[in-house]
């Protein structure tokens, strides 16, 4: 059965329209507006070609916030991958079908409640009188509460990893599900130990999943704000928080300029990733 061209067009039209209108158009507007100028008479922006917004990024250490956001995103994405890879391996190759379903369901638990509540709950765990400190003192490992557990970069990283781990796990589970376990057996048969199989067979075959997981977490962290606000130390900032602050003083071109920079970095990552790892392969059906 072959669908007629008009049917295909009809089916593709809606998602295509949704992507254009809801996704690309606002981003394009953001990029264009980042070059407009602030107009004090209307309290809004007017058409112009001004780089004032971009110049302002270099002021007041704003670029360091962008940089630290990217570093946080990079670190969180790597930590998530290190945790998610063995998890996905266990779910795919070690667990029974039934246990695998249960594990995957458990992994979606972070989505059950809001980021706000979840971040707040980490305060109860990591605080001076929190679960961790109480436990450490009870077993005598420390005599006084450890202060750097909460309101620190450490706490922010814990919150970020806890929030966005599933975004790394699911693409990896998807990628590993496409690896025939006989291929792994064949490698063992030819003399490869566990680590050799991992390095020469499983990793190369799941690279697209690794990159997809990395990208998802990276993008989510780059756009996050709750974790930093709830768990970060004094003066801790992240791009989203900074944009919010800038918007509050109605400096729209600056807000748009920051957004454009972040957008460019992520777009660059996607393109590099696709060239290097073949992201599209994750959704391809390799004839086997």
């Amino acid at each position: 059965m072959k669908a007629s061209p008009s049917t295909i067009f009809g089916l593709v039209f809606l998602p295509l329209a949704a992507i254009l209108v809801l996704g690309l158009a606002p981003l394009a507007v953001v990029v264009v507006w980042s070059f407009w100028a602030w107009d004090p008479s209307t309290y809004w922006i007017k058409p112009d070609f001004s780089l004032a917004g971009y110049a302002a990024i270099l002021e007041a250490g704003r670029w360091t916030v962008i940089l630290s956001t990217l570093v946080k995103a990079l670190l969180a994405a790597l930590i998530c991958l290190v945790i998610a890879y063995p998890t996905a391996y266990a779910v795919t190759f070690l667990a029974s079908r039934r246990l695998a379903v249960v594990l995957l369901a458990l992994m979606t638990i972070p989505f059950f409640t809001s980021y706000l509540i979840r971040s707040f709950s980490w305060r109860l765990v990591l605080g001076r009188t929190g679960v961790v400190n109480t436990f450490l003192q009870d077993v005598g490992l420390t005599s006084a509460p450890i202060d750097w557990l909460l309101f620190s970069d450490f706490a922010v990283m814990v919150g970020l990893v806890a929030s966005y781990l599933p975004f790394a796990t699911f693409p990896l589970v998807l990628a590993m599900g496409r690896v025939d376990s006989i291929v792994l057996s064949a490698a063992r048969d030819l003399g490869a130990g566990f680590w050799t199989v991992l390095r020469t067979i499983l990793l190369p075959l799941t690279l697209s999943g690794v990159f997809a997981g990395f990208l998802f977490v990276f993008v989510m962290v780059a756009g996050s704000s709750t974790e930093v606000q709830m768990l970060g130390g004094a003066g801790a900032s992240i791009v989203s928080v900074m944009i919010n602050d800038v918007m509050r003083v109605a400096n729209y071109p600056l807000a748009f300029a920051i957004s454009t920079i972040v957008l460019a970095v992520i777009l660059g990552l996607v393109l590099i990733g696709n060239w290097t790892f073949g992201l599209a392969r994750l959704f391809e059906d390799r004839a086997q």
Binding site: S185, L190, L205
Partner: peptide
């Protein structure tokens, strides 16, 4: 374990390494 036995197997379903050429498969 399997990787230390003097046994080699032609598997049902073969299990060729899809990311390698014929020579890389045979030379693995």
């Amino acid at each position: 374990p399997a990787n230390r036995r003097p046994v080699n197997t032609v598997f049902q379903g073969l299990g060729l390494f899809p990311h390698m050429t014929v020579a890389q498969n045979v030379g693995y």
